[in-house]
Simulated assay, not measured.
Amino acid sequence: MVKNKGKGGKSRRRGKNDADPVKRELVFKEEGQEYALVVKMLGNGRVSAKCFDKETRIAQIRGSMRKKVWINVGDIILVSLRDFQDNIADIILKYNPDEARDLKTYGELPEDTKIEDNEAGSDEEDNDIEFDIDEI
């Protein structure tokens, strides 16, 4: 029998969830890149993204981001445009809500952009529903 020499299970592989993530430097778009809003998850590492140049593209999550950076509907992302395919792009970076607000104040994003503050497990819209048992 071979003895287990590993360091543990899933919790070790995933890494620790830091209570206060490190503040990183804000990344602006360059030539051949565009900001986008995730509209729909398509599966197989692809999303439908509404770019801020009024174009809807299918964006591919790059391999180094898979299973490390979770992208959801309503997130602001930075995509790299392809020269040979206009309707397909590659996701380079996901902005957290604070970074997206900073981009909006710098004038990089349009003023009518709605930035959703989707933290893990927050369902604020479900909290305002009230039921009266006597009416039922």
Rank of each mutant, 00 (worst) to 15 (best):
L37R: 06
V79T: 02
A19I: 09
G43Y: 06
R46T: 07
F28V: 09
M41H: 12
Q33P: 00
N17S: 15
V38C: 04
Q33N: 06
F28T: 05
V69D: 09
K16L: 06
I77S: 01
G63S: 13
A59C: 02
K29Y: 01
V22M: 15
S11Q: 14
G63V: 04
R57L: 00
E34M: 05
K40V: 05
G9Y: 07
G8W: 03
G15P: 01
M65G: 05
R66E: 07
D20W: 07
A19W: 12
E30L: 13
A19V: 08
T56W: 02
D20L: 08
V73I: 12
V27W: 13
G43M: 07
V69L: 04
R13E: 12
Q33T: 06
S48P: 01
V73M: 12
L42F: 08
V39A: 14
N44Y: 02
I77T: 03
V2P: 01
K16N: 09
V2T: 11
G8C: 01
I71K: 04
D75Q: 09
N44M: 12
G74A: 03
K16T: 07
Q60V: 09
G15L: 10
G6D: 10
V2R: 15
K10D: 00
R24D: 06
R46N: 12
C51Y: 09
M65L: 13
I76T: 03
K3D: 03
K67D: 05
M65N: 07
W70P: 00
A36C: 02
E34F: 06
V2Q: 14
E31H: 12
K40D: 11
T56G: 00
I77P: 05
E55H: 15
F52S: 08
G43V: 05
K54P: 02
K5T: 08
V38M: 03
R13Q: 14
D18Q: 15
K23S: 06
E31V: 06
R13V: 10
N4M: 03
K40A: 09
C51Q: 10
G74F: 00
S64N: 15
I77M: 02
V27H: 13
G9S: 14
G43D: 08
D75G: 04
V22I: 14
R66H: 07
A19H: 14
I77H: 01
E25N: 09
D53L: 10
N44Q: 15
G32I: 05
K67P: 00
K5E: 07
Y35H: 11
E55A: 11
R57Q: 03
E34V: 02
Y35M: 03
R57F: 00
G45Q: 12
I76A: 00
Q60L: 09
G15W: 12
N44E: 10
M65V: 05
V38N: 06
G15S: 08
K54F: 08
K68Y: 03
K5Y: 11
M41W: 11
N17Q: 14
